[in-house]
Design a protein around this nucleic acid. Sequence first.
DNA 1: GTTAAACCCTACTAGATCACTCTGGTTTAA
DNA 2: TTAAACCAGAGTGATCTAGTAGGGTTTAAC
Lengths: 192, 192
Amino acid sequence: MKLSKKGEYALRALIDLGIAAEVGRSLVQVSELAEKERIPVKFLEQIMQLLKEEGFVVSQRGKFGGYRLARPAAKITVGSVVRIIDGPLAPIGCVSHTAYEKCSCPDEVHCGLRMLMLDVRNAIAGILDRYSLADVVEVTLRKMRRDEVPLPFSDSLVPGRAARRITFRSPLRSDLKPVEGILSNLFPDYSI
Amino acid sequence: MKLSKKGEYALRALIDLGIAAEVGRSLVQVSELAEKERIPVKFLEQIMQLLKEEGFVVSQRGKFGGYRLARPAAKITVGSVVRIIDGPLAPIGCVSHTAYEKCSCPDEVHCGLRMLMLDVRNAIAGILDRYSLADVVEVTLRKMRRDEVPLPFSDSLVPGRAARRITFRSPLRSDLKPVEGILSNLFPDYSI
DNA sequence: GTTAAACCCTACTAGATCACTCTGGTTTAA
DNA sequence: TTAAACCAGAGTGATCTAGTAGGGTTTAAC
């Protein structure tokens, strides 16, 4: 049930770009992202390239160039990123919504394993398709500000002062049931 | 987020052994399991060996030998099987309960990705650790009987007549919150 | 006591994937 | 002109995947 390093790094970088945007930095260089997250630069460079091809980020070439999110963080779900990098969320092909594949079992309709794995895939997708980068950025910044940790990517000396735009939650999709978990618990209050 | 073929085959075989026990068959041969599930015999043989080493099944050697579950199906959770075959359920090491591994990120406490992935791991474990083979066997048999499909592994000619023991649900653990999904919906009624 | 049917054990392997590294481009601001 | 950045593609060792191959050992039945 693993997320690959590539997928992990991609999400880390995108979340960082989301934080950067929130804090007033329009462009971040690969080298800075790589250093902050302790990712091999050249490897991350490849990943950023892929994220650009897929329309998640845009780049500015040349000196003082860098990357930024191609659209608001609220419009990029975590699930869409994971699917691009690591493929379908479903544990087995016969329960995938985006890449269904007939399995070898003789009777898919009466396959208990399939029902179980469908539940698993729905649980995973229920989280990853519900939350956007903006949600992750929001909980991260919230926790950091509460603990008075200096925010990353701040140009200004006073963390969190410059260009603190209000993050808006990604629109809740009516076809998804509510989930409970750390993230959703973090939203109503600051209890954690 | 994949389950390997090996993991899939292992679960299929175990579920079949659960069905067989429920239907009155004490021993099933690898060849029969392999044929039913369309798994390469020699590959499944290996897997059964592993399942034996791990204490999920016991074998009877010699002619008319075979395999059976080493303990009641209700005492074998799906999660325990997946962990043995495919490793930890958590998408990334830093949220694994059974195989925690420090990740490369600079500040684990304020890592939004980690919080998100912890939710995912809890969602997965919430399902796979909750349900036992007995649960999967039960929904399978229920669906089959409802649709009047002949039950597999029946020695008797009248499906479902011989030795229909009552399956007992695995004890609900109080530390796990209820989940919704196909399986739990299937239990209270026959609606699907 | 032979035989056939079953499990048991070990080795091997082609191909894919993973997690990078290496080598050089090309673009752009100063 | 130069330096800092992105762009592009090839290569690579290790590991994993999904098996295959070839036997050996045990047991029930004849």
